[in-house]
């Protein structure tokens, strides 16, 4: 056996653990003729991935199948990769022409983040021009024709307000991201994502208690939400949340997530009930990061 082969063996056992998940994800998603190609982007494409890095994919889907693919994406990720939560429709990723979803997937005892940016093939070149990406799968099929309905589907999906349960998923996904920032010492990003978690919690309260609110953002919360004892309690929790350290420690994050979940339990109990066992697993994995 030559030294190159031996070094390959050493490299293989020292690969970041999410490489196994990378292979599995490619195998699962490429299992459909509707998928034209898969690229990785982010740290994997830049060569800067570490053991905490998420897996960022661009999934190019033939235009006529784009809608059907979006409709089954949650079930596919749950059934084949064991995603513990429905995908969070990513509002952090740049608007490049498709739809981004974030999934939390256990693998080898740890929770990993998989970002899927689904794009119709007709927009793939536009997306690739905006981000550094490397191909990991390419089908043999021809490009499909542009399908007029994909524009409507993407725009209407982006404009649709989140449900309370989607906001709860956003809070949990952000918590996972923040925990990673804390571990890496990325203080600025931790600050930004903590603010996003506060905002998601505020949005959850508004969605659950004043779904028809005409007021923007953080305005008029006391007048609208604080009109009832339950609303005042939610605002007291929100006040406690935003009064914490702007750059969180691990303990700060635990306290913030606990408060956010208390708020969700009070304002949107059905949303919490539907995810209760998943949330229990989420806490387990968060402690292991």
């Amino acid at each position: 056996m030559n030294s190159t082969r031996l070094l390959d063996d050493v490299a293989a056992v020292n690969l970041p653990r999410q490489f196994g998940l990378l292979e599995k994800t490619v195998e699962v998603i490429s299992g459909s003729d509707a998928v034209h190609s898969l690229h990785v982007r982010g740290s994997l494409a830049a060569g800067t991935a570490d053991r905490l890095s998420d897996l960022d994919f661009i999934v190019a889907v033939h235009d006529p199948s784009f809608g059907p693919f979006i409709r089954i994406i949650d079930t596919l990720m749950s059934a084949e990769l064991g995603a513990i939560l429905p995908g969070w429709r990513d509002t952090i990723v740049a608007r490049m022409g498709g739809l981004g979803y974030v999934f939390l997937v256990p693998h080898e005892g740890k929770l990993h983040q998989i970002d899927l940016y689904a794009v119709p093939v007709s927009r793939l070149d536009t997306v690739l021009a905006q981000t550094k990406a490397m191909p990991v799968y390419q089908s043999d099929g021809e490009h499909s024709q542009r399908h007029s309905q994909v524009d409507w589907l993407i725009n209407s999906t982006l404009e649709r307000p989140y449900t309370a349960q989607e906001l709860l998923v956003e809070i949990l996904v952000l918590g996972h991201m923040i925990r990673k920032r804390i571990t890496r010492g990325q203080r600025y990003v931790a600050y930004a994502e903590m603010f996003a978690l506060h905002t998601a919690t505020k949005n959850l309260i508004k969605t659950a208690l004043t779904p028809g609110s005409a007021f923007y953002g953080w305005y008029q919360l006391a007048e609208e939400i604080g009109a009832t004892p339950m609303g005042r309690q939610c605002l007291a929790d929100l006040d406690r949340l935003i009064s914490g350290h702007p750059i969180p420690t691990a303990d700060d994050l635990t306290a913030a997530l606990t408060t956010a979940l208390d708020v969700a339990e009070r304002a949107a109990p059905d949303a919490v009930a539907g995810l209760r066992t998943a949330i229990s697993a989420y806490w387990h994995y968060l402690e292991l990061m």
């Binding site: 003729d33 409709r71 596919l76 084949e80």
Partner: peptide, 13 residues
């Protein structure tokens, strides 16, 4: 949903 998966070729899912 399952039929949609099968139509796309994701039989196992």
């Amino acid at each position: 949903t399952a039929t949609g998966l099968a139509e796309l070729g994701y039989d196992h899912a």
